[in-house]
Design a protein around this nucleic acid. Structure first.
Lengths: 211, 211, 211, 211
DNA sequence: ACGTCCGGGACATCCCGTTACT
DNA sequence: AGTAACGGGATGTCCCGGACGT
């Protein structure tokens, strides 16, 4: 079958949309939403204004889509899916996730995409706030549920308040990302990871001792 | 002593600068640095553009001054001065500070001025980054030193790593402010305060037990 | 008999064109030609852009067609056909037409479609000017001819200059529509109708008196 | 005294505003308000965007100012001031004004600035409608009052309804301007003037006859 | 005959900084 | 020390038309 092959601009709506979302995600990550210049974004995406305004009603709509279709899935993939492995110890999973956080200089410098966008836009735009809040809620829900499952299995101490601990963990995680971003110092992030791991270890149920 | 008489607006210079700093602080707090419109700021300050450019070379310079002359002193007053009371238990002081954090809806909604500005500008402007980083460093230094003093006095557990704990505390504090800002939920901040207090309590040296 | 079966959308061609003309007429009436947005128009017509450009070469061509195929027939129906009733007194007919002009708020507000489009586009686009001028010429011709027929039958005063009176009538009619549109006041239009009727009455031939 | 003399751009707020108003008036007259391009307008005015936005908040505000500060005074000067000469016969004055209307091709082609703007914007923008309506009201008031004064002096027939006649006159005047603009035919305007004059003559009080 | 995707120029507005002047 | 006029580049959005696909 021929396969139209190498068309200058292969008419592909889905692909165009995807390119826009990816480019928008990167630009927003680098410059913030308001600091993102549409022209630059479009150049990086290799998409024209007409095409963009065909897919998104406004810059704002594109930003909303980035939250829903990029940031959401990223959180899903990094946190929620691993936590849904029903045969794993949630503490182990969480530790692995935290330790898996990139320490690459550019990531340290730029911080957490979700937190960045949320911090910038939440007080200014309810649309952004609601959407990022949903992701935070899902994130929190995933951790909380996993901790509870761990309690039922005796992997997590019974005295732990799952919901509060999940908030504690997220605050800690985002807080360290913020500090490291400001300090531009990967060591701080690394040290933060150790602190978080220590905290997570403290949630384990005490091992059964023998006489 | 000279004191040249009849200078109706002689003392206005200092006042003008102060008005600008205050207005700038508020506008930046509400809208971010880039989102701050000079015209609006000037209107709120009751100062004209010419006057502003007489005191500050640029919007950026005004922003820098806000960090140094407003955010810095705020941190000094809220954290560092209380911590310097040599006769107090640093854990008690820190708990009091944390519990004293405003839960007013507008503050929950807007978050922490220092963290906001740092998050927005750190990756974009080295001048802002350096200045906010200095405040974070002072903040961290103050907590760290106080904890060490507490250790010498037996108020803080000897096993505590003062520097790391200070980072942990700051990350936690800023992290919860961020979460609450996004969620627009004072309860989350309140719950965060409880978590932070619990963490601080865990740093106390164990009471001497008897057999 | 050919009648090729199974052409679900065979007869849609004519309908599509008609829908476009009607929607275009309404949009132009409401917003002017340049103020008419093709996207909105298309949405109201329930027709897509591709379909439109199949029937009309450009927005301009669509506008021309509105003049010819909508505004022309409207004038025909409202003025020319009644005036062609050879057995009627043209003064009576004209009075009836004038009094039949809608006083509905939306019509008062929007004025005369023909005059609106003419006023907007005549100095800017010769294509529009020529086409609207043709309608005005036909309109004028119809009134003028009817008045002359009335003179032959002794219904219209012989001293009347038919051509000038027709212009006078049209100017008066459009002038009052304009004033009422600006004032958004149906009463002004109503009062204008009375004035026009009085003018028309003055064109009648004097009744034959007896000693 | 020196007189700063021939400065490249003599800092003159009033003059800049005036240039803007004049240029805007002309552009609007030629292209309509919506068809007026700010860049072109600015180039014709010899004023930059910054200067314009210093004097007017928006294109709309500039348009409003054109109505108030250009169209209003024009009407004042052309109609209201002559009509206020208390020692003149208002019919004579009105006839002189009507006959004084320019027949220059460009004016025929472009029509009446007030009516053009009113027709274009009245249904779309209440701000324009109100301001143009005010001018029409003043215009009508001036004619009406003059006719009444004429009645008191026996120059205008007592049976004349001054208010209605004023509306009739304005409608007729604007109506003929519209027709001539569409036809691009000065002769039509000339003929219209004759018709209007004839109408005005009919308003005179009948001369006193002798036996 | 019709639908979607796309191209890209035009436009009003925003807003920081400068300049002339007091 | 302070005011107001001004300069002008950058930006999001609008919107007509064309191209590709069926």
């Amino acid at each position: 079958m021929p396969l139209p092959a190498s068309r200058a601009h292969a008419r592909n709506a889905g692909r165009t949309r995807e390119r826009l979302l990816q480019a928008a995600f990167l630009e927003i990550y680098k410059s913030g939403f308001r600091g993102t210049d549409l022209k630059t974004l479009l150049a990086h995406a290799g998409v024209t204004k007409g095409a963009m305004y065909h897919h998104f009603a406004s810059k704002e709509a594109l930003g909303y889509a980035v939250v829903e279709d990029v940031l959401g899935p990223i959180t899903q993939q990094k946190w929620l899916q691993p936590l849904q492995q029903h045969d794993a110890n949630p503490i182990d999973v969480l530790i692995a996730i935290v330790q898996g956080t990139s320490l690459r200089p550019e990531h340290v410098r730029l911080g957490c995409p979700l937190n960045n966008l949320s911090q910038e836009m939440a007080p200014l735009d309810e649309g952004f706030r609601r959407r990022t809040a949903q992701i935070f809620a899902d994130w929190h829900g995933g951790i909380s549920a996993a901790l509870e499952r761990g309690q039922h299995r005796g992997q997590v101490a019974a005295v732990v308040n799952a919901a509060e601990s999940a908030h504690f963990l997220i605050a800690l995680y985002e807080g360290f990302q913020s500090l490291a971003k400001n300090a531009q110092h990967a060591g701080l992030l690394k040290s933060g990871q150790r602190g978080i791991v220590a905290y997570l270890e403290s949630l384990r149920s005490a091992p059964v001792g023998h006489a």
